[in-house]
């Protein structure tokens, strides 16, 4: 009992500081924060499996609101239920709230600062590298599944999103429908299989 209590406290602390830290240092919007959440909770702490993290990302993307907040809510719920949600939302919201409150009082100075602009330009190359590195690992996961249909889904979703600029929510709904139909059909073919 005592052991469980300390574990829970430990999880809450990790949740708060992880979301706080990621929110405070991540430029460039939701996808970057989601990528970092994956690095932290899947690769480093191993509290969430890679497959489950991808499910959470799909849910975060297809819900309204900031993707980073949605991601924090899902990870928080998964690890510690409702208190986890509260803690991780607070962690994700406090840094931008404080930073923007400070900046909004002297934003003309901030906006024209060349040093800040230069640093931010350089950081974009690093942000791209972080995302690409994580994507590489996840793509290897998909090709290792030895299911050619999943590879085709991946390529089709990429083209739909990047080339045809189809809305993310539409892509997720269509893929979900495809997955449902495929599951029903394969169950009909081999009722004992899977």
């Amino acid at each position: 009992m005592e052991q469980q209590k300390t574990n829970r406290l430990e999880i809450m602390k990790k949740l708060f500081f992880s979301t706080f830290y990621l929110s405070a240092f991540t430029f460039g919007g939701g996808y970057v924060i989601i990528t970092l959440l994956k690095q932290k909770f899947v690769d480093e702490l191993r509290w969430i499996s890679e497959d489950e993290m991808l499910d959470l990302v799909a849910l975060a993307q297809s819900s309204p609101g900031p993707i980073a907040v949605n991601g924090a809510i899902l990870v928080g719920y998964k690890l510690a239920g409702l208190p986890g949600v509260l803690i991780s939302v607070l962690g994700a919201v406090i840094p931008p709230f404080v930073i923007l409150t400070v900046i909004s009082s002297f934003y003309t100075v901030f906006k024209s600062n060349m040093v800040i602009k230069t640093i931010l330009t350089g950081m974009k190359a690093g942000v791209a590298a972080v995302i690409m590195s994580v994507v590489f690992d996840m793509m290897t996961g998909v090709t290792k599944s030895k299911d050619p249909v999943l590879v085709i889904v991946m390529i089709a979703a990429f083209l739909a999103n990047y080339v045809l600029h189809i809305n993310v929510v539409v892509i997720i709904l269509l893929t979900a429908a495809f997955g449902a139909v495929r599951t029903v059909l394969s169950q009909r073919e081999s009722p004992h299989g899977l």
Binding site: M139, V142, L150, N161, T175
Partner: peptide, 16 residues
Amino acid sequence: GVLRSLRPAVVAMIFA
């Protein structure tokens, strides 16, 4: 089944 199909699509969108 639904989630299994969604995962590669999510990877593709993060790549994009």
